[in-house]
Structures are given as C-alpha cells and as structure tokens.
Simulated scan of single mutants.
Amino acid sequence: MAFLQNVPQSWRRLIFLIPVLIISLILATGLYNGSLPKPRLPKVSFEDSHSPFHSDCQANNTNPQLDSLPDIIRALWQPLVLPINEPRFVTLDGTEKRLPPPEELIWHKPLGKRICILDVDTRELSGEGSIFSDRLPPWDKLGSPSAGFLSHYLYAQIHGYSYKFIRAPQYQDRAPHWSKVIMTAKLLKEYDFVIMLDYDAMFPSPELPLEWMFNYWKIDKQVMVAMAEDPAGEPNFDDRHKVNMNTGFIIAQASENTHRLFKDWAECPTEVRYKGCAKWGKTLFHEQAAFSTHVRYDFLDGYSIDTHPQYIRMLPCQEANGIPEVAGSGCLGHLVRHYWGKKGLTNREYSHNIMAAITPLLVQAAYKDPGHVEDLRDKILQGSQILDKPPAAP
C-alpha cells in the first residue's frame, strides 16, 4: 500500500469508497439478494410415438417458477410421472402391470406430504463418500449407503412426499436393526403413511408414485402394514414353515390398531406378550424374524394374518423384493428393489434414477429444439463444395 502515500488525500478517499459503491449497486439491483428472476426449465414435449412422457404432460407448456432444488427435481421428472390411476405400467424388464378396474381403485388423489419416506440408521456415516461427512461427497466416491439414502430423498421430492432421516440411538439389549420399528411408530403419529426403507431398498422406476402402487396392491384403509415376502428358501421360513416377511421395505398406515401393533412388535424381545421372542433381540433376522414368527400370528388381541389378512398385507417377492441379478430366487424387484444380494449396485440404481429424467431432457434440448442441428441431408458433397442435389431424372 506504499503507493498510496503519493496519492492526494481526496483521491485516497475515493479509492476506498469505490468498493462501497459497488456493493451498494449490487444490493440495489438485486444481484446479491436473489431478487432477479429465477431460471426456468423448459417444459419438455415430444410429439413422436416414442415419447417417454405421458400425454397429459405433453400438452402442458407452462413453465413453473423454480425456487429451490425440490422445485427443480419436480420440474425435471414431472413429464415422466405416472398418474395414480393410469391403467397400465410397464416395468424396466418389459413386464406389464395393470390396475384393477376404475370402480375398484382406492386412491384417486395424490397424498403429498401425508406420506413420509423414512430412513433410519444408527451408524455415523461420516467417512469419505458418506452423507454426513465434513466434505460433500463427489460422485465417484459416493458410498453405497449414501447412494441408497439419496435415492429415497430424490423419490420423495419427485412426488412431493415428506422425507425424514433419523439418526437413531442404539438399543442396549438388542441389534441396531430394531430401531427402525420404534422410529416408524414415532412418525406414524405425524403422517398418514410412513414408508421405511433400508438403504439398499430402492425404487427402480422413480416416475411411479406410491399411490399407484397402493391401488395396485389394494392398500385400503384397513391395511395397517404391508411388507414383501422373502425368497421361498432356507433360512427364510418361520417356525410354521411360512415364508418370512421382509422388513427392508415397510408400508405402515397410521391408525390406533397400527400403533398397538408396532408397540407390541417393539416390545417383542421383552416377552411381555410373546414368549420365546427374546432370542430375536440379537439373533438373525432380528425384528424381521420377530414379526414373522410372533407378531403376525397374534396381534390386536388374537387376530392372525390367516384369520384377518385385511390388516397385514404380504406383497409378492417378485414385485417388492430382490433384484434381477438374483432372479433365481423369484424376487425380481419389479416395483421396489432390495439389493440384499448385491448391495454395491445401489450406486448403479441411483445413477439410473437420475439419468432416466436427464437424458430425455438433454435429447430434447440438443436435438429436438431448433438451434443446434443443421440438416444437410438434401445436399451433396463435391470436392470442397456443398451443393444442392440435382433434380431427379424424369
């Protein structure tokens, strides 16, 4: 700053005032406080028969104001989202799923924030590539659990559902897996539906809303809880040789009966109600085995899944469990995938979730909209010249 000593005092004052003036101008024009118009994403509309978008979205040419990342996510996927009463859906492997007749449909309007997507974990998840790391994880360092959790958040934002991640305390007398039972029960006091997923349970088609699946699986207002069946093989049977229900994906619907069921389930290892349940506190398959062996056969003072199947719904393994890589188990994960066989593939699934929406938008912007493609197929090349094709011979 020695050069300032030779500058007149009046000029020195001006030099120090210049930054103040610049900041004042920035504030006045709104560049600093974000008052300028937010960027808008173009509404995508394909007109050919191979459009990946639904017809009711193709005609919608409005551009929503984008105020946050959830707004951007919803704008990206909105043309793809399947209406909850769409009669037909085709899975990634080409399997067709059809809803019941219109008069049998249960859900006709989106439930929005009344549905909560829930992640529960007792681990720190603070290492490299983890969601609670001090540094934001780059894509190529993202851990498999983080990819699963992020896919759940993404799915919730696409459909306008609530999302919660609970960093749960651990039980002193049982395996950490049990925390998801009591945390699901906790959120059932706040939401109509709580959808609890293990990190390796994911939605392969994020455009498919839960309300569509509720209609497909006939999740009416009597259903308290729904879970997928496990593969029909050892060691996945209970003491009655009935296949276990898998707790990696739980649909829980709030009601007084549901609160009672979850309370009894959480207390199962204490053997206040269920004799012989203590061993499942720390023995595989923990809360899953406790539910399958005890709770589903004796809930609400003597009800059983066999006598009152309307309260507990067992979802087909091929639709709500497993992945194509373990097709021999009969669990293909058509609508919900569970990567218990290959947990490292959660990164691949997360990548697909995002690129399913981004790729059509890129194709639209680069190759369908005017401005980037110059079509010279009606020309011919001759030496260094681009010439018109000669008229066809008569």
Rank of each mutant, 00 (worst) to 15 (best):
residue 309 P to L: 06
residue 319 E to C: 02
residue 318 Q to G: 03
residue 317 C to E: 03
residue 340 W to I: 05
residue 335 L to R: 02
residue 305 I to A: 06
residue 325 E to G: 09
residue 309 P to D: 09
residue 328 G to K: 11
residue 327 A to T: 05
residue 343 K to H: 09
residue 325 E to M: 12
residue 334 H to V: 15
residue 333 G to C: 04
residue 320 A to S: 11
residue 333 G to Q: 03
residue 323 I to L: 08
residue 324 P to Y: 07
residue 316 P to S: 03
residue 316 P to L: 03
residue 316 P to W: 03
residue 310 Q to C: 04
residue 341 G to M: 03
residue 316 P to M: 01
residue 337 R to G: 12
residue 321 N to M: 14
residue 323 I to T: 14
residue 326 V to S: 12
residue 306 D to Y: 14
residue 314 M to D: 09
residue 304 S to T: 13
residue 323 I to V: 06
residue 341 G to I: 00
residue 313 R to L: 02
residue 305 I to N: 04
residue 335 L to D: 00
residue 324 P to T: 02
residue 328 G to C: 13
residue 314 M to I: 13
residue 307 T to K: 13
residue 312 I to S: 01
residue 303 Y to S: 13
residue 308 H to L: 05
residue 320 A to C: 11
residue 342 K to F: 15
residue 315 L to S: 02
residue 336 V to N: 07
residue 311 Y to F: 14
residue 312 I to P: 01
residue 325 E to F: 07
residue 303 Y to A: 12
residue 314 M to H: 06
residue 333 G to K: 01
residue 340 W to M: 05
residue 307 T to G: 14
residue 338 H to Y: 10
residue 333 G to E: 00
residue 341 G to L: 03
residue 312 I to F: 12
residue 328 G to W: 13
residue 308 H to I: 05
residue 322 G to R: 04
residue 339 Y to V: 04
residue 333 G to W: 00
residue 335 L to Q: 12
residue 342 K to W: 12
residue 337 R to E: 10
residue 312 I to H: 04
residue 314 M to V: 11
residue 323 I to F: 05
residue 330 G to P: 13
residue 338 H to M: 08
residue 315 L to F: 07
residue 311 Y to H: 11
residue 307 T to M: 08
residue 335 L to T: 06
residue 303 Y to K: 11
residue 306 D to L: 15
residue 323 I to S: 10
residue 339 Y to N: 14
residue 312 I to K: 00
residue 325 E to T: 05
residue 330 G to W: 01
residue 328 G to I: 07
residue 335 L to H: 07
residue 339 Y to D: 05
residue 330 G to D: 02
residue 319 E to Q: 05
residue 323 I to N: 00
residue 335 L to M: 14
residue 313 R to E: 10
residue 325 E to Q: 10
residue 338 H to P: 03
residue 314 M to Y: 11
residue 319 E to S: 06
residue 320 A to F: 03
residue 311 Y to L: 09
residue 331 C to V: 09
residue 343 K to P: 10
residue 317 C to S: 11
residue 308 H to Y: 06
residue 310 Q to H: 06
residue 329 S to W: 13
residue 318 Q to D: 14
residue 312 I to L: 12
residue 310 Q to K: 14
residue 330 G to R: 07
residue 306 D to A: 13
residue 313 R to C: 02
residue 337 R to D: 07
residue 309 P to Q: 10
residue 328 G to P: 03
residue 331 C to I: 08
residue 305 I to F: 12
residue 324 P to A: 12
residue 336 V to S: 08
residue 324 P to F: 07
residue 334 H to K: 13
residue 324 P to L: 02
residue 330 G to H: 12
residue 341 G to T: 05
residue 319 E to D: 09
residue 323 I to Y: 10
residue 333 G to R: 01
residue 318 Q to H: 15
residue 329 S to A: 06
residue 303 Y to G: 02
residue 312 I to D: 00
residue 338 H to W: 07
residue 303 Y to R: 14
residue 321 N to A: 06
residue 320 A to Q: 02
